[in-house]
């Protein structure tokens, strides 16, 4: 069985079918892009896969365990990290504290109420290491809310990475970034996933990025998977061209 297995997911809102029999499987260590026009169901699929929404039918299995229908905090504990389209950080906490609280959770130390947070020396070292990894080490004591947009996105990646996920799910990791910032972020993600052997599933609008880094691509349209395969196959797929990519990947 594949590392991440999505089987026949159906999800409706009212009368609207957001996802129809969506299936896909991702192997360990793979970099997978999920693409599709706006409203194709990418975010809904992400929300189902990480427990924010329960599917009407079908299931999601991660490393052999069923994870659909259980609340996000338990999905995360199984080794999945998620970042969001809209920057999702802890604004009125310092950069350091943002990552620190993630690590406390990862080490199940957030229930210790009688030891001072600063006495967890190993956590402190780890926080600085993670911040170093994303290039925010020198900004550790500024408030997260005053960072630039790109830095906030990187902080969010740092928070997500701090929990040592085996599977990283990124919903438009470069949304709102300048071209330069996107390139940097993508290079960073590639480097990290290679170094740590992470499996990466992401959605993205920028086709240069999608075709530049992903090993496999799943195309959604109107809640259905219309194509699934390697970048070259996807580029050649007439249905994909017709439905969505047409002008964007025309050479």
């Amino acid at each position: 069985m594949a590392f991440l297995e999505v089987r026949d997911i159906v999800k409706s809102f009212g009368g609207l079918r957001a996802l129809q029999d969506v299936s896909l499987s991702v192997e360990k260590g793979e970099i997978r892009a999920i693409i599709g026009p706006n409203g194709a169901g990418k975010s809904t699929l992400f929300n189902v896969m990480t427990g924010l929404l329960s599917p009407d039918s079908g299931e999601v299995r991660f490393d052999g365990e069923r994870i659909s229908g259980i609340p996000p905090y338990r999905v995360i504990r199984k080794g999945i990290g998620r970042s969001f389209q809209i920057t999702n950080i802890f604004p009125r906490m310092s950069v350091f504290e943002n990552v620190q609280v993630a690590l406390f959770s990862h080490h199940r130390e957030n229930r210790s109420a009688l030891t001072l947070a600063r006495n967890f020396r190993e956590v402190t070292d780890e926080v600085l290491a993670v911040l170093g990894l994303v290039g925010l080490a020198d900004k550790f004591d500024s408030s997260a809310s005053v960072l630039s947009h790109g830095d906030q996105k990187r902080l969010e990646i740092a928070i997500t990475l701090a929990c040592r996920p085996r599977l990283l799910m990124l919903d438009e990791p470069t949304a709102g970034m300048s071209r330069f910032e996107s390139r940097e972020t993508i290079a960073l993600l590639q480097k990290i996933s290679r170094e740590q052997g992470l499996t990466l599933v992401f959605t993205e609008h920028d086709m240069d990025i999608v075709f530049g880094i992903s090993e496999k691509i799943t195309v959604l349209q109107q809640g259905m998977v219309i194509a699934d395969g390697e970048p070259a196959e996807i580029k050649a797929n007439p249905e994909v061209r017709k439905a969505y990519l047409g002008e964007e990947i025309a050479e």
Binding site: I89, F90, E97, Q100, E109, A117
Partner: peptide, 23 residues
Amino acid sequence: SSPFGATLKAIRENGQRASYLGI
């Protein structure tokens, strides 16, 4: 000032994100 307190602050700032840290 404990990790527990830090967790509460994180919940105050952004409950959704906190739950996506496994909290």
